[in-house]
Design a protein around this nucleic acid. Sequence first.
DNA 1: GTAAATGCAAAAGCTTTGCATTGGC
DNA 2: GCCAATGCAAAGCTTTTGCATTTAC
Lengths: 147, 147
Amino acid sequence: MDAIEYRIRKSLRRSGKKFTAERQAILKEVMSIHTHFDVEDLFGRLRHKGIRVSRATIYRTLPLLVENKAIKEAPHQQGDFVKYEHIAGHTHHDHMVCIKCGKTYEFKDEQIEKLQDVICRRYRFKPVDHHMDIRGYCHKCRTIKGG
Amino acid sequence: MDAIEYRIRKSLRRSGKKFTAERQAILKEVMSIHTHFDVEDLFGRLRHKGIRVSRATIYRTLPLLVENKAIKEAPHQQGDFVKYEHIAGHTHHDHMVCIKCGKTYEFKDEQIEKLQDVICRRYRFKPVDHHMDIRGYCHKCRTIKGG
DNA sequence: GTAAATGCAAAAGCTTTGCATTGGC
DNA sequence: GCCAATGCAAAGCTTTTGCATTTAC
């Protein structure tokens, strides 16, 4: 928790930026959300707690948190707005998204991770992050998939 | 080419929809674009050829083409709008996106594809499609990645 | 004290929608 | 001829931006 705050505080200072109360509140909130979220979710949760931070500030802060690897973009369906999920504390995982009910399932496979590294090396590509999402029908929806 | 048009024509008829001149033009154009594109790209290209189709129609048509598996969404960076790429004629592939220069590299790995199927079976998930994009620095940018 | 950040409200996109008109089938 | 599709322009949304004010350092 505080390790992340410390890291970000330091990173901001290094580039002459400030760790404001708003940024702290956003960071704290973001780290407490263990599902995917978007700007509106965040705005609502903060307001619900009586913390008044403008949407503009949230929009301006999230990219900072992405840069500092506190959060990253999550997969989103077409038409949806950008969604995020926090990184720290969470181990990396990929997603299965049900195109019927919209539910997201997380998974992780070591072999796939390793193969990705092999491929990157082949292309002399230096990987920083990856997103993988498989779309289809979850076990609940696959039997009733008539549209 | 015409196999796809035939398939779509049939699919539309089956559901009481029409294969209009506009839809034909959009389909044809989409199949001729071998890179990622968005609505604005498409609108510009059509207009450039003297084909007048409204944006509204494009917005209404693309989902039809996705449903009929002529195109699918391509990965896009945050802040970008939705991008598409055509499917037919193209073999499936995944992407590496350089976060410095924005260039996209395509690749495909059979082992990863197979592992994905294994995972889906484990979750009783019926895969329809998947997107995988690895983000990082391409071989040209990895040496000059100071920002 | 100074440069950066905030909040507000306005502006700027992209996308959707209502409605009259057009056109497949 | 009927119902779906189109085009236009307006509306809807999310996201960005200008500017005065506040604040971290």
